[in-house]
Nucleic acid binder design. Structure first.
Lengths: 212, 212
DNA sequence: GTCTATAGCCCGATAGAC
DNA sequence: GTCTATCGGGCTATAGAC
């Protein structure tokens, strides 16, 4: 059997009566496996990373990995779900719900810029990870919650006349395309400045692309 | 030994004296292997495609493949080079050399839109193919000739005051980001319209993003 | 629950027939 | 030059000790 637990829960540490740290517990190891595997997957692709590779890089044994995850595909699926959930949580956390469309878009760009610098594995996963059709039922990142949230704000902006582009999908890809492309080039090493230094320009260009 | 020949050369067909078609010759088979492998690579990733897979899909035997290409990596490298050369040739073919910056950018978008519909494997390769670090010295697509050509025109546009954004790299990614994102979403099945139907909108949005 | 060792499979690359 | 058969190696997943 296997189980997939939340990243952050109240079982992350156990102390015995003498307050000495016990053996690292399963939740921590699961987390370590997921983060290590995500980094390796974005670097080498799903098929390019073997379980022995993950064992060596994470320090968690084969047996332990297979006790947490039924198989390699289940591990990949956990990484997928948790990465998107994590991004969505961070995005919602920054949104109070009362913003103008412009402010929501600006928040999106700023988040992507910051995460590209601070959590490159996470952003690389979201932008580059292509499970190569081999794993069938992975929702493309652009159909997931954070992007649907963005789309609902765009629809509002179009209705209210703030946005010139009438199709909300085209408006969305036109705004986000700039931010996403900048993140891609930054992670490919073509942009040498930190993305956080140019997020204002990206917001400005994206908004010019679609505003009325 | 192995050799990599140009896609289009004068040895593609041989006729005997009675004008009956001879056995399919090596150039045709090399081409078939490259195109089949490219399609499989973009679908399943480099590591996700085995030589037996290519043998089955192309109808060319293992022995023949290894006579054209030293190994799997050499085959991948040939695909990479030829795909970029092919795109660059098509791009230059549409440019007379006397265009305004706007016309060059518009030509780029129109080419990407048309190829996304007519040669999806080629565009998928250029946009998605990530050799996962495993193959070391692959130039990222965005550092290759066609993109440098675009950049030289952008520099001119900035100097002449047609473009507001002062950094040519940021101007370039802001314009192309929209076109490229549209191609990505189309190939992921999220855009149902043919890209050729919306290329005017993409040009307009991209130009609005960077124009003075 | 977690370890090591290994079974069984398929891959990349080659050898040798034609 | 092109085929099929095959070798060694490394993979996924499991079995069995602790």
């Amino acid at each position: 059997m296997y189980k997939v637990t939340s990243f952050w829960n109240d079982h992350s540490f156990h102390y015995d009566t003498a307050m000495k740290i016990r053996t690292i517990n399963p939740e921590e190891k699961t987390d370590k496996v997921i983060r290590t595997a995500r980094r390796l997957f974005v670097e080498n692709g799903y098929c390019g990373v073997s379980i022995p590779d993950i064992v060596k890089a994470s320090g968690v044994s084969t047996g332990a990995i297979y006790s947490y995850f039924k198989d390699k595909e289940t591990l990949a699926k956990s990484i997928h779900t948790q990465t998107i959930d994590e991004f969505h949580a961070l995005f919602q956390q920054r949104l109070g719900g009362e913003e103008t469309v412009y402010e929501v878009l600006k928040t999106f760009t700023e988040l992507v810029c910051e995460l590209t610098e601070s959590e490159p594995s996470m952003m690389k996963y979201m932008l580059f990870m292509n499970h190569g059709g081999s794993i069938s039922d992975f929702s493309p990142v652009c159909t997931t919650e954070p992007f649907r949230l963005l789309q609902s704000h765009l629809k509002r902006g179009i209705t209210q006349g703030e946005i010139r582009v009438k199709d909300y999908i085209i408006a969305g890809l036109s705004y986000t395309g700039i931010t996403i492309r900048a993140a891609e080039l930054r992670m490919d090493g073509l942009l040498t400045q930190p993305l956080t230094d140019i997020s204002d320009v990206l917001v400005e260009n994206g908004w010019n692309a679609i505003k009325s």
